Computed example of a mutant assay.
Amino acid sequence: MTSLEMRALPGATENPVRLGKAAAAAPRRAALGEITNFNTAAVNTKRGATKSKPAAVALKTKRPEVQPQVPEVPAATVAPEVLQQLDVSLKEESELCQAFSEVLLTVEDVDEQDGDLPQLCSHYVKDIYRYLHELEQQQVVRPHYMQGYEITGRMRALLVDWLVQVHSRFQLLQETLYLTVAVLDRFLQVSLLLQVQPVSRKKLQLAGVTAMLVACKFEEMFAPAVGDFAYITDNAFSKAQILEMEQLLLRSIKFQLGGPLPLHFLRRASKVASSPTQQHYSTYDEAHLRPIVQLIAKNVVQVNDGNGKFKAVKNKYSSSKLMKVALIPQLSSAVVRNMAAAVDDSH
């Protein structure tokens, strides 16, 4: 048999007799040795080993790891008097922390009892109102912003009085009315500053109903249709004019409708209606509030002594549905009239 025929036979390359002593001394390569973590060299540590275990068998017979022996330490026993002394010290520390907290916070936590009411967000309601105060500064309406405007403050007052009636006619949410006035004032202010088609006297009512339309879309679940607002103006303006004014209004205020409303702060103030607590949560002291209260008193006196104009708000709050708060005798008392008399004429 030739050497070529011998090489062609199966298993001829594994015959140490035909390949010589060098081939017989070479270790046999385990199957899949290149892609496993098994160390075949560690198995054949003795020279002259005639057989080597397959890789699969070696993996199954892995030597178990020996865990170090850790001596058991007996539990220490604590004397009862030591435990009693420790309990007393912890109690004193708790009382000290409570006393220290009361010194730092001299007002009550008005949100402490609202943990089981998720809609009140008691865990982060203080952060919410801090954020609303920041937005209030960003979206502030300047005092006397109508100076130099074709529209006067009296025209605006007549418009708001009419919007209150429209609000009651449509039976809308309180938030919708407050947002309507806020959007209207911001729109008029921006239009005057940028000189972007300032609202003329003839289009003031159009701006008012458009502001209410936008507020309804933001607050109401079922907002009145555009045709309803055109009808409420006695068809003085068409649906196309209202939609055109809506685009101008939203672009002017940069679509920022999520600002704070007086109603938001009013609800918070009514929850903390006491002197030091009110000052703490509202951040306003008596010096801040006095001129505002005097202006409100002046408006109340003017409505009570008026000749029939600006009666929508009083008529609204004279109903039994709103507890007839506009008819309480305190609004006609000498205290309110004295505060109204103290208002500076420049206001």
Rank of each mutant, 00 (worst) to 15 (best):
C121N: 10
E108N: 14
E65P: 03
V88W: 03
Q113A: 08
L105P: 05
Q113L: 13
E108M: 04
G148F: 01
Q119A: 11
L132W: 07
P71G: 07
T61M: 09
Q67C: 03
V82M: 09
Y149T: 01
A99D: 15
Q137T: 13
A76M: 06
Q113G: 03
S101G: 12
L120Y: 07
V141L: 05
H133N: 01
V110L: 11
L86P: 00
K126C: 14
Q138V: 09
D114Y: 13
I151L: 12
L83E: 07
L120E: 10
R154A: 14
Y131W: 09
Q137V: 12
P118V: 04
E95N: 15
L135F: 00
L104M: 10
T61G: 11
Q67P: 10
P74A: 10
T77M: 07
G148I: 00
Y129L: 02
S101D: 15
M146A: 03
V125D: 06
D114N: 14
L86K: 13
A79Y: 04
L90P: 07
Q119T: 09
Q119G: 02
L86M: 11
L117T: 13
V110F: 05
Q137H: 11
D114P: 06
D111L: 13
Q147G: 09
T61S: 10
D116I: 13
S101C: 13
T152F: 07
L96F: 12
P80K: 06
M155Q: 04
L90M: 12
R156K: 09
P118W: 00
Q113Y: 12
P68A: 02
E134A: 07
T77V: 10
L135R: 06
L90F: 12
E81A: 14
L96H: 12
L132V: 01
H144D: 02
E134C: 06
E65D: 03
V88S: 14
E93D: 09
L105T: 12
T152H: 09
H144Q: 02
E150H: 08
E65Q: 04
Q139L: 13
R142Y: 11
Q69R: 01
S89F: 08
P64F: 08
E134V: 08
C97A: 15
D127G: 08
A75N: 10
Q147A: 05
A75V: 12
V66S: 04
G153C: 02
R156M: 03
D87E: 07
L90Y: 06
A99T: 15
Y124I: 10
Q138I: 09
D116P: 08
Y124H: 09
R63P: 05
L105Q: 06
T152S: 09
E93R: 06
V82R: 04
E102D: 15
A76G: 13
G148P: 04
L86Q: 14
K91L: 13
Y131I: 06
V73E: 05
E93A: 10
V110K: 02
P74R: 01
Q84G: 04
V78Q: 04
E108H: 10
E112N: 06
M146H: 07
R154N: 12
V66C: 07
S122W: 00
R63L: 08
A99S: 15
E102N: 15
D111G: 13
V82Q: 03
Y131C: 04
Q98A: 14
L83Y: 06
T106G: 14
T106M: 14
I151V: 15
